[in-house]
Amino acid sequence: MPFPDIAPEAFYIGPFAVRWYALAYLAGVLLGALYGMLLLKRRALWADNAPPFKPDEIWDFAFWAILGIIIGGRIAYVLFYNLPQYLANPLEIFALWDGGMAFHGGMLGLMLAVMLFTRAKGGNLLSSLDLLAAVGTIGIMLGRLANFINAELYGAPTDLPWGVVFPTDPLGVPRHPSQLYEAALEGLLLFLVIRFATHVTHSLRRPGLTAGIFGIGYALSRIAVEFVRLPDAQIGYLYGGWLTMGQVLSLPLLLAGLALALFALRKKRAL
């Protein structure tokens, strides 16, 4: 299947290109904040009718969310995906326009930002992580769609009818569109699962449970897709040629998700 005729640049402002990837980040934060505000307004969803902070305060948090994602994502990419390159050229660490972000680091930066923000507001820290879990899948889906538009992070060769020939592939063979797999699993499907949990089974009344569901769902989805997604060229496969860095970094997230879910389920559900 040929690659769709979509340029990585959405539009230009004079000589400056505005890329779909940057717009995906901004749209993810904006839409996530809007959805988060709706959740915060529905006090009955939360334990003791007490959301982690006031609905209108989410716009103050959005600024810190962007910083947490960028700083955390960049630090993790430097440390885990290309450390020798950045040790040799330390100024390139700040060249964000050249790309290089790691989801797991961005998530940790976002978690730290929301916990510090919630602590300053006197809210429940676990509920703040639940809020992130409920809205974070929106940004994940948009980010993976942007990866597809950039023709990056594609999968292994395949003879399946939906294999895509990416313009950046030097071999020019059909490959798994692993970015779309991740957008569907880590984004859309996980959003629907968490939506069911928050609005039908009332998971937000058990602080930490929604975050645990996210951790389990994301980790399992990422680990599964990594079996058909090519690893970063500078790292390759690990431990005998079958494990990837993405899978390694997803294992702690899986364990943390299981621990959070079990902790939340053992406590009496708030009414």
Rank of each mutant, 00 (worst) to 15 (best):
R269D: 05
P167S: 05
G217K: 13
L40C: 02
H202N: 14
L249N: 05
A156G: 01
L249E: 10
N150T: 11
G106R: 01
I235A: 03
Y12R: 15
L38Y: 00
R229A: 02
G122Y: 00
I149K: 02
L116Y: 03
P4S: 05
V18N: 10
T168P: 06
L180A: 08
G217I: 15
E182H: 04
G187H: 00
A50I: 00
V165M: 07
L79Q: 01
I213V: 13
L142D: 01
K41S: 07
R206P: 11
L251R: 07
W64A: 00
A270R: 15
E92W: 00
T137F: 00
A10R: 03
S221N: 10
M1E: 07
L110K: 01
A211Q: 09
A183E: 10
F263N: 15
M111L: 14
P84V: 12
N150V: 09
L271K: 14
A211E: 11
I75W: 02
A113L: 08
A10K: 04
V18L: 05
V164G: 09
F227L: 14
N49Q: 12
W97S: 13
V228E: 02
A197H: 11
S178P: 04
N89I: 12
G143M: 04
V200P: 05
S221F: 04
G28W: 03
G241H: 09
A261Y: 07
P2E: 13
A65N: 03
Q179I: 10
P157A: 12
L265A: 08
F11L: 09
A133W: 14
G68W: 14
K121V: 06
L262H: 07
W64C: 00
A95M: 15
F94P: 09
G99I: 08
G72M: 06
G28K: 10
G172W: 00
A7N: 15
F61G: 00
A62M: 13
I93M: 15
D232I: 01
E57F: 03
G217Q: 09
L185N: 09
I149L: 08
F53P: 11
Q179N: 03
Y12L: 02
T137M: 13
R229K: 13
L160D: 14
L132A: 13
V225H: 04
I70C: 01
Y25E: 08
A50V: 01
